[in-house]
Structures are given as structure tokens and as C-alpha cells.
Computed example of a mutant assay.
Amino acid sequence: MDRALRVLIAGTGFAGQGHAEAFRGAGAEIVGIVGRTPEVVRDVAQNMGIPYAGTDWQEALTVCKPDIVSIATPGGAHYEPIKQAIAHGCHVFCDKPMTSSGETAAELHALAQAKGVKTAYAASFRYTGSVLHAKQLVAKGAIGEPTEVECISHFNLEREIPFGWSHRKADGGGRLNNNFTHTLSIACSVVGEKILSIIGEVRDDLGRAPIVEGVHNFATRRNFIPKDLDDPALKWGESDVEWSYTVLARLDSPFADKPVSVLFKHGGLVPRFHEDHIVFYGTKGAIYIKGHYGSGQLYLADKTGTWQEMPLPQDIADTVPQVKGETEQCWHYLAREFVRDISGEPVAPYPTFREGSQYQQIIDLIRKNDNWTDVAHLA
């Protein structure tokens, strides 16, 4: 194209501001931002030098005439803005979760295909340097045929974090929507994108959270934890989502004759004893990455079990955006690929609404919690 692509942002919090910076880093022009609260969206627009600020999404689409919309609100608020944007012929960049249900996600995927617009789904931690390195190593046969993957994380989140979208299924809350989406994307990116089968169990071990006014930014929600949780005037909201999960999957891999087994284990409210990690096992070795999203140091083991710390190859390091924060780096990476694709440049496959729809339908299946076999009667 002979001009910068025009981007309209939905959401004024950490993700909205992060998406805006990511698209600017990719050479796009941020033409507007929309939020719920007039004074908040006005302040964010002013601070970021964004020319249009508003609270009416449909009006913003008409006034700003964007090429791309970036959806950075909680998942429960994605459906209508995305549907309207597709109707306007906009390409859509959407943070996870795609929507609050598999049904609505599948509908939006179909609408985007019918309209012929491009989509990007920001289950984007597949773009950390170490995950990109692991993908390269597996493709080169460094661990032989991949056989197993384990993704283990314990967040020890404060139970007193104020009640909000993360506690409500209808708003896109829950650990499957906001943790599993990333680790599933990482596993698929490294060993194979085709998901063959899934089984899982979820648990809500939170129950309730205090209701506090004034929380506008997810990144600063801890600052609003009440000092006196025994205050009789304090109101409480009831959680209806999972805070822990265990999921097993089987992935088809172009690098293995047999399906690869994957374990996803996450405890949102429990402490970790050692580091969170992601491990890829194979017939000739293994890859261990520190960190719940694989953003830490990578280690490679040979078939004798001897581990070696591996430096990040320069060709991969050169592709990682030089911005602060692993979340921001991954947004920048995906936004860059999306802009290049829309501009007609060749790019590697990236997550789209196909993956977003599929992941959302898988989450619905896991949440049914009906995978148990009763063995109490066995002698």
C-alpha cells in the first residue's frame, strides 16, 4: 500500500494501550480509540497522541474508517464490536479469549471468511524468543520425534483481587480463557497445529471476591484490594469460572509418526515450589524452558539426559521486537506479521480466528467437566 494502515483500538487499559504501541511499531497509524468511560478514553487518547476518542464503537467505525480494528477489551465484550467491524470490511486483530463461547467464536470466524477480511488471534506467547528457539530445534530434529509436552504453572493469585470480568464466564473470565489459550498455542506452534483430541477437568476454588469501584486497568487491579476484608459494608461477587485446570491433549505432528501427548496443568491460586516451565520430550532428547509461557532460559538435553543451557540464536534474536515486557514483545511480533500480511508481504502462518474459534470450542468442552468414569463400584 502507498499509505500507512489505519487502526482503530477498542479498549483503554493495559491491552488497548499495548495494542496501540504494537501497531505503531509495525508502521501503522492509530486513528482512534474507544472505551466505556468518556474521561478515561479521553485521557488515554491525549496521553498517546491518538486523534479520535469516543465511547460509541459504531460511530468510531464510520468516522475513523479504519483498515484494521484491534480488540483489546475483556472477552465478553468482543462479539458485537467484531461483528460490526467485519460488516465494515475491517481486518480484525483480537486478543484472547476470542469471545465468551465457542458458538459465537465460530460465527465470527465464518463471517470473517465470508467477508474476505484477514484476522489475527493474539494467543501470542508462541512468539517469545525461547519458544521460537524450541520450534526451530524440534524442526531440525534436535530431540528426535516429539513424544510428550508438559506445561506447568502456578500463579498464586491473590484471592482478594477485586471482582471483575476475570471472575465471570459471560465476560470472558476464567483461567482456560486467559492461560490455557497461550499454552495451547505454544504447544501447537512447536510440535503441530492439528489438535486431535482433548480431555480435561476444571475447578473453581475461589468462590467469591470483593466488589470495589474504580478499577479501570487490569494491570493495576491489585492496587484496589480492600485493606479490611472483614468490613461488614463490603460487598462480594460470586465467581462462576475455573481457577485451576488439568487438560490432556493429543496433537498430530509432522515430526512424529504417533500423536504427541500434552499435559496442561495450571493452578491459579496455589504457590509454586520451583519454577513454572514448559518441556518438550522426544525420542532423542528434551527441551526445557523456564517460565509459564516459555519466556525464560532454554535448556537442551541429549538422549543421555545431560542438560545444556542454550543461547538464543542470533537469527531469532533479530526477530524479537526490542520493547519492554514479554507480553508487549509478543503483541509487537504478531501485529508486525499481521500488518505485513495485509500489505501483501509474505509471512509465516500466524494464529487467526480459525484457532480462536477452535480454542473457544475446546474450552466449552473442557468446562463441561463430564469426562469422568465412575470406578467406585470396582472391587
Rank of each mutant, 00 (worst) to 15 (best):
G49M: 02
Q136R: 07
V247M: 04
E145D: 09
V191P: 00
T319E: 15
E158F: 09
A142H: 01
Q360T: 14
G144V: 04
E238W: 12
Q58Y: 02
E238P: 06
I342R: 06
L312N: 14
H78Q: 10
S130W: 08
H216N: 03
G200A: 07
R24S: 13
A233D: 14
A77M: 07
G173T: 06
A112E: 07
V63Y: 03
G214F: 02
S261T: 11
E238M: 14
P346N: 03
W243Q: 01
I82W: 09
S197V: 06
A142T: 05
H154L: 13
L184H: 10
S185C: 10
Q58K: 14
E39R: 03
P313T: 00
N47T: 06
I363D: 01
R222A: 13
P162D: 08
T55E: 03
Y359D: 14
W331S: 05
M310C: 12
S261Y: 04
G207Y: 06
I143Q: 01
V41Y: 03
T37I: 04
I68K: 08
V138M: 10
P313H: 09
R272Y: 07
N369I: 10
E160I: 02
K284W: 00
Q297R: 01
F218C: 00
P51A: 12
M1N: 14
G285S: 06
A317Y: 11
F255M: 13
I342Q: 00
S153A: 14
Y79F: 10
Q46Y: 05
R24F: 06
R221M: 05
P74D: 00
E29I: 04
T352I: 08
L206W: 02
E39L: 05
V191I: 13
A45P: 02
C188E: 10
I33S: 00
L248T: 08
H154S: 08
P74H: 01
T373W: 08
D171I: 00
S239D: 15
W57M: 12
V320I: 15
Q322V: 12
A72I: 05
P226L: 15
H19E: 00
P351E: 10
E213M: 06
R250N: 09
R367V: 06
L61G: 01
A22H: 04
A15L: 12
I86K: 07
S153H: 08
M310A: 12
G11Y: 05
G325M: 05
G214W: 03
E80V: 08
K258T: 04
L132K: 06
T147I: 07
T99N: 01
R336Q: 14
P146T: 12
V339L: 11
H274Q: 10
R126W: 02
R159N: 07
I50W: 02
A22T: 02
D231G: 15
L229K: 10
R222P: 04
T306R: 12
V92L: 08
T183Y: 09
V212Q: 05
Y281Q: 07
F180K: 04
M1K: 07
N179D: 13
H274E: 14
R168D: 07
E345F: 10
D257Y: 09
L298E: 03
A112T: 05
I9N: 12
V270E: 14
T319L: 04
F255Y: 15
